[in-house]
């Protein structure tokens, strides 16, 4: 087995100290791997992601990236360490133009030369041509799908080893959902590992390598994404199979 990129070990975290939402979750993500976390509302999926990127306080447990301890580090340092984060809501700066959003994402490239910044911007426009067309328009004028593209492009500016996506398909039309998942696979093909939380469990599992099911802030089921698609318990609870609750 390849040495994992991200290791989350028995993580306890929440918004208020003493009232954790995540109760000892352990997950790993290998380089170039697409890992999805699914689970019912309130399972602590979003909180887990925010704790990884330092936006939520960690009470105990350990998070390492390529062996380096990033537990409880301020968010900008987690980003510096090689993690890109796309939150679920407010994922673009609406008052900034598309180009300025990308420049904000490239904040840490400081001191590496203007050429590198230009190169990364052109790469983003090549990857998402619609962003190139709208580069001087404010992000508030973008559609939901375009915002998600911009958010992903922004997170990619620093060439992270891992991109963390919080419900990237939330509120998108079925056609766009498919496009987002294709983009996610595209990131993996470029050598980036992806950790995402999804409500659209079936679509996400089809495009993922491995998956975790969380319930009530704890690990519930884990395994290869395909095997979870066939798992009766998972299919009953998330994939619109038999109406049987995940007890």
């Amino acid at each position: 087995m390849i040495a994992p990129l991200l290791v989350v070990d028995r993580l306890v975290a929440g918004y208020v100290r003493g009232l954790p939402i995540v109760h000892g979750v352990s997950i790993t993500v290998a380089p170039r791997e697409v890992v999805t976390v699914i689970g019912p509302n309130g399972a602590g999926k979003s909180t887990l992601l925010k704790a990884i990127v330092g936006l939520v306080e960690v009470e105990s447990g350990r998070i390492t990236l390529s062996g380096r301890d990033i537990t409880g580090q301020p968010t900008h340092e987690v980003v510096q360490a090689g993690v890109g984060f796309v939150p679920q809501t407010g994922n673009v700066f609406t008052t900034l133009t598309v180009a300025e959003n990308l420049r904000a994402g490239a904040h840490l490239l400081h001191g590496q030369g203007k050429a590198l910044l230009g190169e990364r911007m052109e790469r983003a426009y090549a990857m998402f041509p619609v962003l190139g067309e709208k580069r001087h328009e404010r992000a508030r004028t973008l559609s939901g799908g375009q915002r998600q593209m911009l958010a992903m492009a922004r997170a990619m500016m620093t060439e992270p080893a891992l991109v963390v996506l919080d419900e990237p398909t939330a509120g998108l039309s079925p056609l766009l959902v498919d496009e987002v998942f294709t983009r996610v696979r595209g990131l993996a093909a470029q050598g980036v590992a992806v950790l995402m939380v999804e409500q659209n469990a079936k679509g996400a599992l089809r495009r993922s390598d491995r998956a975790y099911v969380l319930a009530e802030g704890r690990n519930r089921i884990e395994g290869a994404a395909e095997s979870l698609l066939d798992n009766p318990e998972v299919s009953a609870a998330f994939l619109g199979g038999h109406r049987k609750a995940l007890s």
């Binding site: 936006l55 301020p74 968010t75 900008h76 980003v79 407010g90 609406t94 904000a104 994402g105 904040h107």
Partner: peptide, 20 residues
């Protein structure tokens, strides 16, 4: 740009690597 980004959303600014 970092200042305008932070003015709109400190959380997203941090997620972009900006030290608030």
């Amino acid at each position: 740009i970092a200042m305008r980004a932070t003015a709109e959303s400190p959380a997203l600014a941090q997620a972009s690597g900006i030290e608030v």
